[in-house]
Design a protein around this nucleic acid. Structure first.
Lengths: 210, 210
DNA sequence: TCTCTTCCTGACCGTATGGTCAAGATGAAG
DNA sequence: CTTCATCTTGACCATACGGTCAGGAAGAGA
């Protein structure tokens, strides 16, 4: 509300620095966890003095909260592609594609999110209970409709969603393990394509959508 | 090797306290991460003075290392059930069953493991490069044999393994999220059965094993 | 130019943490 | 009982951390 988007040098500086800090924070939180991350290290990565971080973000927790919220938004909107799909093959296929792409483009964010949830969601518990629950109910309903219409096998919609989250986010959260098993090298474009194809193939066939 | 298992009151005390500390450490590391965990809190959970922890484990890292190694062992041996199975339906089905059971019985250990890998495996990198790589190569070969024998569809064995790890461990690592979506209550026995059945159904069907 | 607000930052502070230690308690062996 | 090794623990220490603050720099508006 308010905060007239008066474009000026001032607002530019603010926006730029906030972004810079948030990016550095995402990286450091992903690598070290909330407890292991230090404001000093985030400051170093951002290339700013530590005191400057506290000018933009009052506390370490405030900064962390913003990082988590950012990822949560991205995460939620990935499912938009499901909504206006004619059936599970297209809808779930596209959702897998979208989430795999998130794992590839935002691995740090995915790790921060995983870490947050693993530790009991201390800062986004309320979102889980409201936004995420509604989201899940809605999408489970969509899947159930596809089942009722005979477009896919009878599976438990919620467990299918869990499986989709698990398999796609695994490529970000356990990216280091996958990289190690891949000879220490990150997946190439071709390998990412193969990964996406594998996930889609097994799941879509598993739910009787193809 | 060595360490004659001379059973005495002394060895008993040592074994008992080490176990006590390791259990407390697993819990605290799972809840707070390595950086967020404190020796004092682990000591409190174990019901021992902090100085006593340092008598049994020189440093926080030593203690952490032991916790991670313990889980790694459990993790590896879960796949034993695959080896003497006649085909993928039994072998992979049993593996899913075993890993789901680990997620249920050792959620803390699973979280510590996930955290360790997510942060770049600072303490078990060498295991990933040796033990885990061999393990993976071996199991991928087994799956490939099943494919060659026409017992299942042509899927990428490694990506199938990733999917198995992801889906089963998700129930431990993201247990809090699942619990929240389940109305704030842990899964009941019946719900765990349904979870296992869902995972098995989709994957086994997805790989053409049933 | 002058004034006001926002931005920047080195120096500082209280606290909590991992780890140490010395002195005492407890069990094993003779 | 004596001796010795193991175990236990309160008190202590150096360090690193999150956070504060005062005073200066730099835009914005007149």
């Amino acid at each position: 509300m308010s905060t007239a988007p008066r474009p000026s040098r001032r607002n530019e500086i603010r926006a730029q620095n906030e972004t810079l800090i948030l990016q550095a924070a995402e990286k450091v939180f992903a690598e070290a966890g909330f407890g292991g991350a230090t404001m000093q290290l985030i400051a170093d990565v951002a290339g700013l003095p530590k005191a400057n971080l506290h000018y933009y973000f009052a506390t370490k927790e405030d900064l962390y909260r913003r990082v988590v919220q950012n990822i949560f938004e991205i995460w939620l909107h990935a499912a938009d592609v499901m909504d206006d799909a004619p059936g599970p093959a297209e809808g779930i296929g596209a959702y897998i594609e979208a989430k795999m792409e998130i794992s590839r483009r935002h691995p740090d964010g995915s790790k921060v999110w995983a870490s947050e949830v693993m530790h009991g969601a201390p800062v986004i518990q309320d979102y889980l209970e409201t936004t995420l629950r509604d989201w899940t109910t809605g999408r489970a309903g969509l899947i159930q409709r596809w089942i009722d219409e005979g477009k896919m096998a009878q599976v438990d919609p919620e467990h299918l969603l869990y499986m989709l989250w698990a398999t796609t986010q695994h490529y970000a959260d356990f990216g280091h393990q996958i990289e190690t098993l891949n000879g220490g090298k990150p997946l190439t474009d071709t390998q990412w394509k193969a990964a996406k194809a594998s996930v889609k193939q097994i799941i879509l066939r598993g739910i009787g959508a193809i």
